[in-house]
């Protein structure tokens, strides 16, 4: 960091109070750089400490906890005792869906335990992610194309589109719960009597519909930002060359908007993999709508340490997905400049 400062153009100014002034007087250029670097270190330290406290510490702490057994009941006193080290048992239990057996050892988790839901929750999480992100990308793109045009009342449309995104998710979930009520609007409008939250696929679609409604505006805005980066001249040139609307979309809009689009898809995917509030409020996780996050929260109430193992597993899953996106699909979050060339090899 400090090396990049290089030979500084800043000469010690006459006015007092600047950091450089505090350095020893009459020193050479080297010392000045050094004192600047020292100063930079002090300036950066609070941020690094803050990051350490809010990011590094919880992650390490969770990983340490995940290698501990959960507190067990001492049959003699009826009191809980600390579990002690567990090795990788917590991880083995989750991945193999094993539960503690009454006589010691483990058995396959019976239905009705959280352990029995790991793989189905993983599957559900990915189903939700794939379907919602696909729908949101298509609809968001379409909304962005509309918003990118110049027409009367455009700012009104842009503001209106933002409304679902502005509503807190928990409130959204409660609204959709009313809509999907047996006597709710959804059934009244289509004259159906579907038990939306009471059977598997309707429950899944209820979650998907609510999530799409809520987060499409987010996609639309990110894509809109990308669309507005494309200069109008490019389109004009293409028109002059006789490109059809479809060709213009495919050959100009898509490649040029791709960096913004990939970032939007990456954000939404990571977000969707953590989905919690919507299914938790709409269905309580019934009918196979339990996501990994819901499973973690439920497990916390039954035992911290194995919840820590589960959240570490979830973390790794999300990390792998993010890695695949960045490495192979060319989602370039950090350096905007090199974005277009990547991932095409």
């Amino acid at each position: 960091m400090a090396t990049e400062v290089g030979p500084t153009p800043v000469k010690a100014p006459a006015s007092g109070g600047t950091p450089i002034h505090h350095g020893p007087k009459g020193v050479g250029e080297d010392n000045k750089i050094l004192s600047q670097a020292k100063w930079a270190t002090w300036l950066l330290a609070p941020t690094i400490i803050a990051l350490g406290i809010v990011i590094v510490y919880p992650i390490i702490s969770a990983i340490v906890m995940s290698f501990q057994k959960d507190a067990g009941l001492d049959p003699a006193t009826g009191l809980f005792t600390a579990g002690g080290p567990a090795g990788i048992q917590n991880y083995v239990n989750w991945l193999g869906q094993q539960c503690a057996a009454p006589g010691g050892g483990t058995v396959a988790c019976p239905p009705g335990t959280l352990g029995a839901q790991f793989w189905s929750a993983t599957q559900t999480t990915f189903i939700f992610t794939i379907i919602t992100v696909t729908l949101e990308t298509i609809l968001g793109f379409w909304m962005a194309m509309i918003m990118a045009r110049t027409f009367k009342g455009r700012s009104l449309v842009r503001a209106a589109v933002l409304v679902p995104w502005a509503i807190p998710t928990a409130v959204t979930a409660q609204l959709w719960l009313f809509i999907f009520d047996f006597q709710g609007i959804a059934n009244k409008m289509f004259n159906t009597s579907i038990l939306w939250t009471g059977s598997e696929w309707p429950a899944k679609w209820a979650v998907i519909i609510a999530d799409t409604w809520k987060t499409t505006p987010f996609m639309a805005l990110l894509i809109l930002a990308g669309l507005q980066m494309i200069p109008a001249e490019v389109y004009e040139a293409a028109k002059v060359d006789g490109a059809s609307a479809w060709q213009r979309f495919r050959m100009i809009t898509l490649p040029l908007v791709k960096p913004a689009l990939m970032v939007a898809v990456l954000f939404r995917t990571l977000d969707a993999l953590r989905m919690f509030d919507l299914p938790y409020i709409l269905t309580g996780g019934a009918n196979n709508t339990t996501t990994l996050s819901i499973l973690v929260i439920n497990q916390i109430r039954q035992g911290f340490n194995s919840a820590a193992a589960l959240s570490t597993i979830t973390f790794i899953i999300i990390f792998i997905v993010a890695f695949i996106f960045v490495r192979f699909l060319g989602a370039n979050v950090v350096e905007q400049s090199g974005a277009t060339g990547k991932g095409k090899k």
Binding site: L73, G83, A100, P102, G104, C109, P110, G112, T113, G115
Partner: peptide
């Protein structure tokens, strides 16, 4: 039967 087994594993602890 499943309830019975689930509750047994919960009580089995570690």
């Amino acid at each position: 039967a499943d309830m019975q087994k689930s509750i047994e594993t919960a009580g089995a602890g570690s």
